[in-house]
Every structure is written in structure tokens, then in C-alpha cells.
């Protein structure tokens, strides 16, 4: 999927995207920020788990798996 302002879990594997906004508050937001998901961070979708969810992303050099519920709260712009 191409485009701007889309939730992270929608981007195709192998694609990279730039973080624009986190639409969550509280401890989940803190945790995401601690993972380095601040504005402008480049995230790459690496692979889906066998059943399609969660999806593993490369975030600042680490591979982190996020369930679609969480990833959907990260709004990104796809980089071509």
C-alpha cells in the first residue's frame, strides 16, 4: 500500500515508512517512544508471522514484533 497517513500495520513487507504520529496515550505511548518510535523514525516491515499477525518491524536496528492492534496506532508515510 502506498500513501501518506496510513496505519503501520497496513504497509507491505519489505516497505519502509516514516513515523508521523502515535494515536495512543498512556503506557503504550511511552513504550512506543522508548522503542524509538518518535516522529521521523524510519520503520521497515520485515515479515508477518505464520498466521499474519503480529508483524516484525525493524526499528532503529532492533527487530520488534507488534500486534496489529498496536501497529494500527502508529501513523506513517510510506517511503518509495
Amino acid at each position: 500500500m502506498k500513501g501518506k497517513n496510513i496505519p503501520l500495520h497496513m504497509i507491505a513487507c519489505g516497505k519502509s515508512a516514516k513515523v508521523k504520529e502515535l494515536t495512543t496515550a498512556g503506557s503504550l505511548r511511552r513504550r512506543m517512544l522508548d522503542l524509538g518510535l518518535v516522529n521521523g523514525t524510519i520503520v521497515e516491515a520485515i515479515r508477518k508471522s505464520p498466521s499474519g499477525d503480529p508483524i516484525a518491524y525493524e526499528i532503529r536496528g532492533a527487530v520488534i514484533a507488534l500486534r496489529s492492534e498496536e501497529a494500527s496506532k502508529i501513523i506513517v508515510d510510506v517511503i518509495d
Binding site: R31, P54, A56, A62, I64, A65, R67, E69, E70
Partner: peptide, 8 residues
């Protein structure tokens, strides 16, 4: 289920 992140 509550949120979680898993590092590989």
C-alpha cells in the same frame, strides 16, 4: 488482551 511488544 493488553498491548505488548516482542523483540526478536
Amino acid at each position: 488482551p493488553s498491548s505488548f511488544t516482542l523483540e526478536l
